[in-house]
């Protein structure tokens, strides 16, 4: 079994008024290649914080993060092949696309940064791959529906052919029917691009539908590791109940 991602004793804290606030402490898990791994928990449990550390968006952590054999280093930007391999799709397609840039610009930028050629054609292919007409390249984000915007965000994440896609509540801002379309699209793309997913969600239904394994988080710690059998018993109430568990490490307000 190959581990795509392994995270050991990950702790993340932020400075606050009195002391440092520990958002994540002692989180350990590993994700096998080709799987969809769920980080599940109520608001404020630290699941997005873990994802942002893996994405390299927050480098102030301690512990060990290993991605496809490359160790990330705390305090340093992710560069080179590892940077291409890790891409992220954010929760809100209304705020994750630049409102004053056309879709062609938004999708062309990562290619330009990495010095690719034939950008216009690549943008057309990228849109087509997520089920959008290449004619949308000339539009601004506000001229698209929420589902179309999330497709653009997914297209952007796929442009550099990542091996690991980090999904932060990718459908929680969408209608149930649009959510169904996006989840189908993600599963199709995962199969065709041989990707590994880490999915953050508080929705037990989405997790149960998508994930092969996962962990339930509570107050910055792993409350429970979940395999498929345990996922079958995961209910909305169980996710919510994790918010009220008394955990020794909890130093919230």
């Amino acid at each position: 079994m190959t581990s795509a991602v392994s995270v050991e004793q990950l702790s993340i804290s932020f400075p606050s008024a009195k002391t440092r606030f520990t958002a994540v402490s002692d989180v350990t898990f590993s994700v096998e290649e080709g799987q969809t791994f769920g980080l599940i928990g109520p608001s404020g449990c630290g699941k997005t914080t873990v994802l942002r550390a893996i994405a390299g968006l927050n480098t102030g952590w301690t512990g060990l993060i290993d991605i496809f054999g490359a160790k990330l280093e705390p305090g340093r930007k992710i560069t080179g092949d590892t940077r291409r391999n890790i891409q992220m799709v954010f929760q809100d397609p209304y705020s994750s696309l630049h409102p004053r840039h056309r879709i062609a610009h938004i999708l062309g930028e990562p290619l330009k940064v990495h010095g690719a050629e034939g950008i216009d054609a690549a943008v057309g292919i990228a849109l087509d791959r997520v089920g959008l007409s290449p004619a949308l390249a000339g539009r601004y984000p506000h001229q698209l529906s929420g589902g179309q915007r999330q497709r653009v965000a997914i297209a952007r994440a796929l442009l550099l052919k990542p091996k690991l896609l980090l999904l932060d509540e990718p459908t929680s801002a969408l209608d149930v029917t649009v959510q169904a379309e996006i989840l189908n699209l993600l599963n199709d793309l995962k199969a065709s691009h041989r990707m590994t997913f880490i999915l953050v969600s508080h929705d037990a239904g989405v997790i149960g539908h998508m994930c092969d394994r996962g962990v339930l988080m509570s107050h910055g710690r792993i409350a429970r590791a979940l395999d498929r059998a345990a996922l079958s018993e995961l209910t909305e109430d169980a996710v919510e109940a994790a918010a009220w568990d008394e955990t020794p490490g909890y130093r919230g307000n």
């Binding site: 029917t177 379309e181 599963n187 149960g208 998508m210 498929r228």
Partner: peptide, 20 residues
């Protein structure tokens, strides 16, 4: 019925969700 079934769950794992 499609609207009812569009919500993902543990039982829909590995299947395509119905879309319109």
């Amino acid at each position: 019925r499609g609207l009812w079934a569009a919500r993902p769950s543990f039982a829909t794992y590995g299947t395509r969700l119905p879309v319109f």
